[in-house]
């Protein structure tokens, strides 16, 4: 029962001959991304430490690289690439919508509590 596999990654830029080859290709890609993360995490280049949209630029890079990794794990290891479009959307959109909402609510609240401390309504520096 050999199944149909979509063997192209990077929007068709890279095509593999077999599913096994694609798996190794994705492994190499994920390892490279992890290596970049680790190197950036150890050396923390000064240039990337500036604030971008309320967070250090480096942190944005980490988060984006993480989502990239998550995409390839879900698409190639969990075979979402080979599922129907509808199943893919059911899984991804549900999660993405709810998680974005949750993150927004909690981080907003965390920032508010921090402001309460910072403005001296509640003292915690003793």
């Amino acid at each position: 029962m050999a199944q149909e596999h979509n063997l192209a990654i990077f929007r068709g830029l890279l095509k593999f001959k077999s599913n096994t080859q694609k798996i190794w290709g994705v492994l190499i890609f994920l390892s490279i991304v992890t290596a970049i993360e680790v190197v950036l995490g150890i050396y923390k280049p000064e240039v990337l430490m500036t604030q971008v949209l309320g967070m250090k630029g480096l942190n944005w890079i980490f988060i984006i690289l993480t989502i990239v990794k998550a995409y390839y794990i879900a698409w190639d290891f969990m075979h979402l690439r080979d599922e129907t479009t509808a199943l893919r959307r059911v899984i991804v959109w549900t999660g993405v919508f709810l998680i974005c909402y949750l993150i927004f609510i909690l981080l907003q609240e965390g920032g508010y509590v921090e402001a309460v401390f910072r403005n001296g309504f509640v003292k915690n520096t003793f």
């Binding site: 999660g95 998680i99 993150i103 965390g110």
Partner: peptide, 24 residues
């Protein structure tokens, strides 16, 4: 998996909350 992903994101978002609370 989707429901478990929401559980984990709940934990990680709560972690984010505490981290923003003690951001300095």
């Amino acid at each position: 998996i989707v429901s478990d992903a929401l559980t984990f994101s709940g934990f990680l978002a709560a972690y984010g909350f505490s981290r923003f609370k003690f951001i300095d």
